[in-house]
Design a protein around this nucleic acid. Structure first.
Lengths: 352, 352
DNA sequence: CTGTTAGCGCATTCAG
DNA sequence: CTGAATGCGCTAACAG
């Protein structure tokens, strides 16, 4: 008493009174090409519909070597909202092309990574998306060679594989422009370190900020080193506030740092944006939940994921170098508007 | 010039100088059972290793009707950290049994849901996990009938399918016990509504809180209705603080509400836990990031996901009704300790 | 226009 | 102990 097995092509052909070949062609939409009469093709289609037939992808895959399935390997699929958004974007783009996504979480373990890639390959995936939670420079795993693959939120120095990453430098410029435009840039301080040599988001964001300030003939006044965590940021910003002159603007390298900075400012009796303007990166939910909401440059995770899949499945072209996607500014209420009264009235500043 | 195709069983047999049958048995670990000499079996294993052989799962699957792949259907895989944690737990449990996970996000669309289930079935998945982001009562989709399936973070009233859910009632009791033990329960107010008839977390948490209070011959003093969002909670708690008597303890139905409550308390010049103790549900990162960190009852998402998969793949037994998993208390610093000075010194309270 | 035939790579029954 | 033969469900030459 097994569960009733699904109808097979044979059943459809039988019911339509044709051969399996004819049924196959009709179902594949190659009726006219194969000069099958409309009447016959129609009969096949009707039979299939009545039986609720859909082709067994396993058998189809064995024959055609296309599984309509791709694999997505990531260091973390469970770390906050970001990985989920990449997955969602990739999954939606794949589904739009009739393919499903197999997931694998490596937790950064190279051996596990290789096992997962192998497991996907023996299942005949049509290709692999290799993603990282944090944007980083990587060396392509050996197991990825010989298979269609695309890098998502990471890239290889030799550009051996198509890659999709956020335009972090331009993102840095955008957030800097907001500070400059609001004229709260008298004492702008960056918060967050950039010590991990493989995670490149920090250095690129900083580079963008400096570039935009330089272009406006301005300079960033300081840099508070801090891990990208709430607690660390609270500690470091608190210390900086106690030690040095008050900043007029804080550019936090991510939203968690902004949260820590908020807490530190509040503890110091400073108000955002009245006393200090705060901007950040990531555009996470957290940025919107804080009071006032943080103006933050978001990461287009869904689009990154979707583009990676489109690249993999051939509907997008690869220019031969990493594709960068723009980072949207998500406006909050954490920047003092020009002309809005504050403790410090912005004086005209001479260019450095 | 195709990429070199993977070695096949034939190649292994050839290299070992045996038939495909023998190679198959040796590789399947059925050497002794089939009375194959150790020497021969060894030769096969070596040949396989040298060639880097692993069986083509597609072919294997077509023959055996087992794909070593399961599908996970969820309304949202991209909504915050929760869905990711379920995925991670499910994925890890599956991998431990040599199976991979196919994902599908329905966004609550029944038609899309059915399509995704069908797509997974035609790929020959060994079973399906049907998950919801919020714990809810559901009616099992028709497409799930006739296939091994397990419900994750949701359940069917008729218990037609194995289900795994957090023990929300016991979670409610635990958080209530913390408030009672700390003796900050003079004026305990619940924050959050429970209006969605299908999402049962709210009503169960509330039931647990009331039960524990009743057992201690105490009563909850009030209930602030609010959507489970930061902004809404800020508004409602602010209003309540302005209108009525000050609470001594706030039990927030999730962490986002707690964040809104924190902001409202701060705006009202009240300190946590000095003036008001705050506890919550979900145990999200947010609870740890707030200052002071929020004592929160967590949801064991990884374990829920893992257990669902174990149930599906047959290594765990189903008692015939939904399995509940305990919700761990994640201690924070948001509850005033017994004897710690506060604006309100807890007097002995007469039982109601 | 349609049917026959031959595998895709593997597991398995049945003779040696 | 081992090898030849069969078929999972489907696609695609290749004849009719």
């Amino acid at each position: 008493m097994d569960r009733p097995s699904r109808p097979t092509l044979r059943d459809v052909a039988l019911r339509a009174g044709v051969s399996r070949t004819t049924a196959s062609y009709a179902l594949a939409g190659r009726a006219t090409e194969m000069r099958i009469s409309d009447e016959t093709a129609d009969r096949v289609l009707r039979a299939a519909a009545e039986l609720g037939f859909s082709p067994n992808r396993t058998a189809q895959s064995l024959r055609t070597r296309r599984s309509h399935t791709i694999g997505l390997i990531s260091d973390y699929v469970a770390y906050g909202e970001f990985a989920g958004r990449m997955l969602a974007g990739a999954s939606a783009a794949a589904r739009a092309r009739g393919t499903l996504v197999l997931i694998g979480e490596t937790e950064g373990d190279a051996s596990l990574e290789q096992q997962l890639i192998e497991e996907m390959l023996v299942r005949g995936v049509d290709g692999l998306v290799y993603a990282t939670l944090a944007c980083r420079r990587i060396t392509v795993p050996e197991a990825l060679r010989g298979t269609p693959a695309v890098l998502l939120n990471c890239f290889d120095a030799s550009a051996s594989l198509p890659a999709v990453v956020p335009d972090e430098v331009e993102g840095g410029r955008r957030i800097a422009r907001i500070v400059l435009d609001a004229q709260v840039d008298e004492r702008t301080v960056i918060v967050g370190n950039a010590e991990d040599p493989t995670a490149i988001a920090g250095e690129r964001r900083i580079a963008g900020i400096h570039a935009e300030f330089a272009q406006a003939s301005r300079r960033v006044s300081g840099h508070i080193q801090s891990r990208w965590e709430v607690g660390a940021a609270f500690d470091e910003v608190s210390r900086a506030l106690a030690d040095g002159p008050l900043p007029t603007a804080l550019i936090c390298l991510n939203d968690r740092i902004a949260m820590g900075a908020y807490e530190a400012l509040e503890a110091a009796g400073l108000r955002v944006p009245h006393d200090v303007s705060v901007v950040a990166f990531d555009g996470s939910n957290l940025a919107q939940w804080l009071r006032p909401s943080v103006t933050s440059v978001g990461i287009p995770f869904e689009q990154l994921g979707a583009l990676a899949v489109d690249l993999l499945l051939g509907s997008a072209d690869w220019p031969g170098h990493a594709i960068t996607l723009p980072m949207p500014v998500i406006a909050g209420a954490s920047v003092r508007a020009v002309g809005q009264p504050g403790d410090i009235t912005p004086p005209p500043i001479e260019a450095g």
